[in-house]
Amino acid sequence: MSSAEFIIQGIITAIELIAGMDPYILSIAGVSLKVSGTATFIASLTAIPLSFIISHREFWGKQKLLTLINTGMGLPSVFVGLFVFIMLVPAGPLGFLKLIFTPKAMIIAQYILVTPIITSISLAAINAVPIAIRENAYSLGGSHRDVAVVVLKEAKFGIVTSVLAGFGRAIAEVGAILIVGGNIAYTGSVGGIGEGLSYTRTLTTAITSETSSGDISVAIALGLILITINLSVNAAVSMLQGRGEERGTA
């Protein structure tokens, strides 16, 4: 087989698998979206209020918290994976939670990875809202909560961008979830091809294992789905940034 043939054949089979809604591949994409989506959602629930508090309040340790967030932005995912693994493994301090090698463990790892990113980007967006906007809302009779709503609305493009960026990091991440999730698929049907449905197997970890076992077409199919999701997220982010700038110069 020539190399071109090999690649083309791989891609054709991959497209057939996607078009045929192969249940194994769909279940992997589903686990990826579920884990990364949930992690991003919970991270947003922490990060957005946190960035608001950092922007609006003075408190002890604020500088340290900012340093921690900046450090967290660049945390290697395998390090986070190792940390969560040590914590959750039955021999570890949180072993009693029985979370190791479950989707929840993966959500925890991705939560740790993604929260600093969302916090940092939404903090920048909130800081960019002019103080005059805040004071006007306050002056017009708004309570602290009303003012917060105004500021969040003003920063909404930046905040949505931060959430999408966090999701983009989560869905493309492999090191942490491989360690804490274990890349598990359920037992396949007897005599059938390949594996059963995914339990903790995601697009990224499955690409790793499918490449290892030589199932290049399946790996390509998974890669195509992953890259489609990722490109869409990136397109949305750059589109939003374009809008934010447009507003800044207006």
Binding site: A132, I133, E135, A137, S139, K153, E154
Partner: peptide, 9 residues
């Protein structure tokens, strides 16, 4: 205020 600082709405 001196600058009107209207909400982006």
């Amino acid at each position: 205020f001196q600058s009107s600082a209207l909400f982006n709405d």
